[in-house]
Design a protein around this nucleic acid. Structure first.
Lengths: 112, 112
DNA sequence: TTCGATATTCGATGTTCGTCGAACATCGAA
DNA sequence: TTCGATGTTCGACGAACATCGAATATCGAA
């Protein structure tokens, strides 16, 4: 289906466990880092990962429901972005320290 | 079996996803909060939760493998504690902000 | 040495999760 | 209106997970 105006939870209603679960998965963490690496939003299509579209859609839904990302629809395509400020208000420091951490698998898979 | 000198990973070898996964479970998060609420260590027996002993043992193993807690054996009983400082060195701010968050389910189930 | 207390491990069970391909819905363009 | 592009939803599958009770290993005390 085409992206039809997604619903986003209020960050106040999101529980910590939900956010942690959302971030506790390699692919999703990678998406979050990818979004954090650039200011503003990213086009869905440009989220280039070695997974099926349906899988990506699934992960984005989980991140959305966890209040971590938000989607904006424009015509038939959509743009994704982090809800950094709101998240910071709800879970101060969480996103920052998660992004700050560079572990082995992450430092090694991008550029040399 | 009796507690026989557990093995603990070096925090440097622990990946972020592993820690997040360990914390992304209500029961385990509760254990971590419980341990944080008191200075020093806590006797295994005093970890009073509505779960089977085998389940508790299982969760503690996961937290241990994630470098979140450590166990000390004394005779036939053991004591559990948070690896706060080490964790802070590996993932600065993470434990702190996870503990700082008080969400609905957590604020509501203890005292009024 | 025998017994009770203390955790861990094992085996089983039901649930949740990540993944895919196919079917579908919606929009813009031809 | 017909098409092609774009994401989403559905159904299915195997892997991973939370949970329990029973069996087990280890230690201290009687």
């Amino acid at each position: 289906m085409a992206p039809r105006e997604h619903t986003h939870p209020a960050v106040e209603d999101v529980e910590l466990v939900t956010v942690l679960s959302a971030l506790a998965e390699p692919t999703r963490l990678r998406i979050v880092r990818m979004l954090a690496a650039m200011e503003g939003e990213r086009a869905w299509k440009d989220i280039d990962l070695p997974i099926a579209q349906s899988t990506l859609s699934h992960h984005l839904k989980i991140l959305r429901n966890a209040g971590v990302v938000q989607s904006r629809t424009e015509g038939t395509r959509c743009f994704v972005s982090l809800r950094e400020e709101e998240l910071e208000g709800r879970f101060p420091g969480l996103l920052e320290c998660v992004l700050a951490c560079r572990d082995a698998w992450n430092g090694g898979h991008q550029a040399p």
